[in-house]
Amino acid sequence: MNASRLALLFFFFALATTLTGCDAIAGIFKAGMYTAVIGIFIVVALLFFIVNKMRGPRS
């Protein structure tokens, strides 16, 4: 096992032993919501940038 996989396994073991089931699930969903919001913001900003580049320079 490489070091990163061992660290990940230790992290999940620590989570499993320190958090109750509901707290763990709530943390996963909260992280998912924040990740989705940030991802949507990045995609919209990228699309806005691409559309502005395709329009060309404004005179």
Results as ranks from 00 to 15, higher is better:
residue 1 M to F: 10
residue 1 M to L: 13
residue 2 N to M: 04
residue 4 S to L: 15
residue 6 L to C: 04
residue 6 L to D: 06
residue 6 L to N: 04
residue 7 A to S: 03
residue 7 A to W: 00
residue 7 A to H: 02
residue 7 A to Y: 01
residue 8 L to P: 00
residue 8 L to N: 01
residue 8 L to H: 01
residue 8 L to W: 00
residue 9 L to M: 13
residue 9 L to R: 10
residue 10 F to K: 08
residue 11 F to A: 09
residue 11 F to S: 07
residue 12 F to H: 03
residue 12 F to Y: 03
residue 13 F to E: 09
residue 15 L to Y: 02
residue 15 L to S: 01
residue 15 L to E: 02
residue 16 A to N: 09
residue 17 T to L: 07
residue 17 T to W: 03
residue 18 T to F: 01
residue 18 T to Y: 00
residue 18 T to E: 02
residue 18 T to P: 00
residue 18 T to H: 01
residue 19 L to V: 01
residue 19 L to E: 01
residue 20 T to R: 08
residue 20 T to G: 09
residue 21 G to D: 10
residue 22 C to E: 15
residue 22 C to P: 12
residue 22 C to Q: 15
residue 22 C to Y: 15
residue 22 C to T: 15
residue 23 D to W: 11
residue 23 D to N: 14
residue 23 D to R: 12
residue 23 D to S: 15
residue 24 A to H: 02
residue 24 A to I: 02
residue 25 I to M: 14
residue 25 I to H: 11
residue 25 I to A: 14
residue 26 A to F: 05
residue 26 A to Y: 04
residue 27 G to Y: 06
residue 27 G to T: 05
residue 28 I to A: 04
residue 28 I to P: 00
residue 28 I to T: 05
residue 29 F to T: 07
residue 29 F to R: 05
residue 29 F to H: 10
residue 31 A to V: 09
residue 31 A to T: 07
residue 31 A to E: 05
residue 31 A to H: 07
residue 31 A to G: 12
residue 32 G to K: 01
residue 32 G to D: 00
residue 32 G to N: 00
residue 32 G to I: 00
residue 33 M to W: 11
residue 33 M to Y: 10
residue 33 M to V: 13
residue 33 M to F: 12
residue 33 M to E: 09
residue 35 T to V: 05
residue 35 T to A: 05
residue 35 T to G: 06
residue 36 A to M: 07
residue 37 V to L: 07
residue 37 V to Q: 00
residue 37 V to N: 02
residue 38 I to H: 06
residue 38 I to V: 11
residue 38 I to Y: 09
residue 40 I to Y: 11
residue 40 I to K: 03
residue 40 I to D: 06
residue 41 F to S: 10
residue 41 F to H: 05
residue 42 I to S: 11
residue 42 I to W: 11
residue 42 I to C: 11
residue 43 V to H: 01
residue 43 V to K: 03
residue 45 A to R: 13
residue 45 A to E: 14
residue 45 A to I: 08
residue 46 L to N: 13
residue 46 L to F: 13
residue 47 L to N: 12
residue 48 F to Y: 10
residue 48 F to P: 00
residue 48 F to I: 10
residue 48 F to T: 07
residue 49 F to M: 13
residue 49 F to L: 14
residue 49 F to C: 10
residue 51 V to H: 08
residue 51 V to D: 03
residue 52 N to K: 15
residue 52 N to W: 15
residue 52 N to T: 14
residue 53 K to P: 00
residue 53 K to R: 13
residue 53 K to F: 02
residue 56 G to S: 02
residue 56 G to W: 03
residue 56 G to N: 04
residue 57 P to D: 13
residue 58 R to Q: 12
residue 58 R to W: 12
residue 58 R to G: 12
residue 59 S to T: 14
residue 59 S to Y: 15
residue 59 S to H: 14
residue 59 S to I: 14
